[in-house]
Computed example of a mutant assay.
Amino acid sequence: MEGPRGLKKDELRSAAELANLVFRHDSPYKMEEEFPLLFSENNLENMRVFVDAGKVVSMVGMCINDVIIMGCMIGAVCIGSVCTHPEYRNKGLASKLLEDATNRAVQEGASLMLVSGDRGLYRRFGCVDAGIYRWYSIKRDQLEVHEKNLTLRKYGEKDVIELVKLHQLEPIRFIRTYEDFKTLLESKRLCDQISETYVVEQNGPVVAYVSLQLPRSRDLPLAILELAGSRVAILKTLRSLMDDVGTESAIVRTTTADVELDHLMVSAGAKRSTGGFMGTVKLIDIERFLESIDTYMTEVIGKRRRKNLSIKYEGKNSELSFTYMDQKFSIRGIDEITSFIFGSVEKQQKLKHANSELEDMLNSIFPMPLVDYGLNYV
Rank of each mutant, 00 (worst) to 15 (best):
A233Q: 01
G92P: 11
R231P: 04
H85W: 14
S116I: 02
G156D: 03
V82W: 13
D258T: 02
N43G: 08
L238G: 03
M73K: 11
M265S: 02
P86M: 08
G279C: 07
E336K: 11
F322G: 01
K91T: 02
L375F: 15
C78Q: 07
S187G: 08
I79D: 08
S318P: 01
Q348I: 00
E260D: 07
H263Q: 06
T183P: 13
F289T: 00
G333T: 04
L375Q: 12
V57Q: 14
K154S: 09
N43H: 14
D100M: 09
I69C: 14
T255P: 10
T177E: 14
K55V: 05
R13S: 10
D159R: 10
R123N: 06
K188A: 09
R189C: 11
G61N: 02
K148D: 01
Q202V: 02
C63Q: 07
V300D: 04
L185V: 07
Y178M: 14
C78G: 10
T255Q: 14
I175W: 14
E2G: 07
A268S: 10
S211K: 10
N103Q: 09
K188H: 14
S137N: 04
T338K: 04
Y296H: 10
S187Y: 12
Q193D: 03
A110L: 07
L166K: 09
L97H: 05
R140H: 11
G109E: 06
